[in-house]
């Protein structure tokens, strides 16, 4: 039986950059535990000889020819950006440490 602890939720929330308060964490942990229990039930099914499914569509990926089809739309994209300068998007400072 899988059990997800509130501390696991805090870690996952951080990795996914989702705000989950400490009060919410216990509730979220319970609900995710329920989902995992459902998965445990599914694990009991006999899957010998069944190839793992990578995608629900039973077909192969179409590939594209290596030809430039996109045009420069920087002006349109940067019109909706919070901050731009010299053609760059500006974001809160990231120190590469």
């Amino acid at each position: 039986m899988a059990t997800v602890k509130p501390t696991d939720i805090a870690k996952l929330a951080h990795l996914a950059r989702i705000a989950v308060s400490e009060e919410q964490a216990a509730d979220v942990a319970d609900r995710i535990t329920e989902v995992l229990n459902l998965v445990d039930q599914l694990q009991e099914a006999d899957t010998d000889g069944v190839e793992p499914m990578a995608h629900p569509l039973d077909t192969a990926q179409r590939l594209r020819a290596d030809q430039v089809t996109e045009t420069d739309q920087r002006e349109a994209f940067q019109a909706i950006a919070p901050a731009v300068e010299d053609g760059l998007y500006l974001v809160p400072r990231v120190i590469d440490e």
Partner: peptide, 12 residues
Amino acid sequence: SLHEDFHGMTGI
């Protein structure tokens, strides 16, 4: 990422 100073921001 360009970390030169863009008024305390990073250029992308």
